[in-house]
Amino acid sequence: MPRVSDEHLAARRRQILEAARRCFLREGFHNTSMQDVIAEAGLSVGAVYRYFPSKNDLITSIAQSVIGGADDVFAGLARHEPPLPLTEVLERALAFVDSQIGPEGMLPLAIQVWSEAQRDPTLAEFVKDTYTGFRNHFATLARRAVAAGELPSDADPEAVGAALFALVPGYFMQRILTGRPDRHTYLSGVRTLLTHPAP
């Protein structure tokens, strides 16, 4: 029997994940069954269960795909040479968010991941670790901003990083739930806050 190539296995896995993503976006995690995913993928029961023994395995893999792209973007911003001004960092982070908000994007599933993490301890640990990593990228950005003189020398990079990172999910939650504000308006408000701090 010929050996199935790694490329074929990876393509089949992507096929199943894409089918699951469509189902989850359409019906939500709880209203989607493994049979729904199998039908959407157009594969046999055995083919799907070979890659994902349970719906929880599918949800975790979807969560990883939702979050993995963001981690690459935030890590790249934290390593950028020369260091970017913090407003430029936020603008690039929100441009990535905008690319992922639409029907083909991954962020509408992020809200479902957060909800599912409240009841699934394994997923909760994954989400905690991942978002801690995001926050660490922003703390690195704040540390570099202190070194560059953009922030006061006594600024706490951990505190600044946490506040700066919070602006990202704050933006996409508003966009997903209410359709606004647009990126330009949001960034205008952030710049006002950053350049005109309270006395």
Rank of each mutant, 00 (worst) to 15 (best):
T178K: 05
H8I: 13
I101V: 15
P2I: 10
Q112L: 15
N31P: 01
S44D: 09
M34D: 03
E88M: 07
L167A: 08
A10C: 04
S44Y: 00
A110E: 15
M1N: 06
Q64G: 11
T132A: 09
P197R: 09
E88C: 05
A162R: 12
E104M: 07
N136A: 14
V73R: 02
A19C: 08
L94Q: 03
R144D: 05
I101M: 06
T178W: 08
G46S: 06
E125K: 14
S153I: 09
H30V: 13
T122H: 08
R92G: 01
L187V: 11
Y186G: 02
I16T: 05
S61L: 09
T122W: 04
P169L: 04
R12W: 04
T60R: 11
G76V: 15
V4C: 01
A41F: 04
D129Q: 14
V146Y: 00
G189W: 11
T32Q: 01
S99W: 04
L84Q: 05
T60Y: 04
S65I: 15
A145Y: 00
P108G: 07
L58K: 00
T32A: 00
S54G: 03
R22A: 10
I38S: 04
A20P: 07
E27Q: 13
G69P: 14
K55P: 08
Q35F: 02
T132D: 11
R175H: 10
V37E: 00
A162Y: 06
R22N: 02
D129P: 02
D72A: 14
P103L: 09
F138M: 07
H8A: 14
T32P: 01
Q64E: 14
S115L: 15
P2W: 06
F134I: 14
A63I: 13
H137S: 13
D6Q: 12
K55D: 02
L94P: 10
L123H: 04
V168S: 01
V48G: 00
R175I: 13
I59Y: 00
V89W: 02
D154Q: 11
Q64R: 15
E40Y: 02
V45D: 01
G76C: 06
P53T: 06
V73I: 15
L77W: 06
G170I: 14
A198H: 15
I101N: 02
G161R: 04
R191T: 12
T178L: 10
P85R: 04
A198R: 15
P197Q: 08
G179Y: 11
I101H: 03
L43P: 05
G170T: 14
I101L: 15
A63L: 10
D154V: 11
T32V: 10
A78W: 04
L123I: 11
A163W: 09
N56C: 03
E91Q: 12
Q35A: 11
V4E: 09
E81Q: 13
H30E: 14
L194K: 03
A110M: 13
Q35Y: 02
I59K: 02
S65G: 04
G105A: 06
R21T: 15
K55R: 12
F172G: 01
M106V: 13
R191D: 11
P82L: 02
F172L: 08
L84M: 08
A147R: 10
R79P: 03
A41W: 03
